[in-house]
Design a protein around this nucleic acid. Sequence first.
DNA 1: TCAGATGAGTTAACACCGTTAACCACCGAC
DNA 2: GTCGGTGGTTAACGGTGTTAACTCATCTGA
Lengths: 197, 197
Amino acid sequence: MQTIERKVRSREQTRSGIISTAKAIASQEGWQAVSIRKIADAIDYSAPVVYEYFDSKDVLLDEIRNEGFRYLYKEYDRILKLYRDPEKRLYEISLIQWDFARQQPEIYQVMYNLDGAYCTMPVYQSEAMQAVSRIVEEIIFSFIPKAKESIKRLYFQWWSASHGMIMLSMLLKDEQPLDQSEQIYRETMRRFVRDLR
Amino acid sequence: MQTIERKVRSREQTRSGIISTAKAIASQEGWQAVSIRKIADAIDYSAPVVYEYFDSKDVLLDEIRNEGFRYLYKEYDRILKLYRDPEKRLYEISLIQWDFARQQPEIYQVMYNLDGAYCTMPVYQSEAMQAVSRIVEEIIFSFIPKAKESIKRLYFQWWSASHGMIMLSMLLKDEQPLDQSEQIYRETMRRFVRDLR
DNA sequence: TCAGATGAGTTAACACCGTTAACCACCGAC
DNA sequence: GTCGGTGGTTAACGGTGTTAACTCATCTGA
């Protein structure tokens, strides 16, 4: 008789298999092409087993989205340990945001409901997203200790600047090479951080 | 026998009927809920007649998107006639962008493939979008006459700043009131325009 | 006036989608 | 040896975009 751990491990394996094939399909054919049946086929199961792991397609997408935010959190945390200067920290975090969107665009898409990816759950209610927000807000605070409202405002501006340019770069990538966009992005974020002083 | 004009007019009426009910459904239930059959029902036809007017759902969405860009173009043009100062012009255009996104979010969504709206045709190939780009680039040029590359770069930065903040404001509208976001938006765009000097 | 063409609109179908109910076969326990 | 649960299946429901085939009225030309 297989131990209970063994069963749990196997469950977690197929669960992460569902997630990673969903991401794989999205990466190759776009989120619009991701369907429960296609995922099930890819992992050699019938469609209903997917529902043993995720109540709906929506919560599957939500899980992938949260995975994305958790990944970002981890990376931001790494930067926190790597540098002490708040200016440097915020700039490096901006770069991570760029690299993430560039290397895993599907995840970035589902995080912001971009390009056919559509997840009903509101982003701002995601615990993982709030953790990410908190970490950046803390950096900004250590930078210029102001009232909470001001910090929120500055974070909103930083987020907008970063996300806006990333989104537009992806949108125009066939017109304006990504390397060029990256250069402008770096300069813009550097300027933003500098002007914070 | 009804004249040929009469027939053409009727055709154009049902055509614009299709477009406006698509927008109406999107406005009330989101783009995800927009289906050919639902549109057909609303205009008291069967589904296939929609295909007499639009080859596919995709080109219907593309038409709505282009309508959006044409509207923006018209508004920008109005500003051009209203003010002569390039600084004022660019700032006013930024405000139009905001009002447009706020008053007709469905259109804004389909223009940028946001929130479940998904149109395959690439935006940057839209003639209407390019006209909008040109008009803003010309304003920036009259501002600071530089090489074409620099203008494109500045336009990209302006567009990013505006679009990024608009998108995030919509995303966070239940957390951060839109009026507050608008205030920050105005200040940010004002600063952008000022720093251009 | 009557046959034929035209064209607007329909129904029915195909293949897919998310989701759920019903079922089946196996495997450990008593 | 029979029972219950567990992991998996098939089949179905209502919906999607899209197309082929059909109907039927109206207009055209002889």
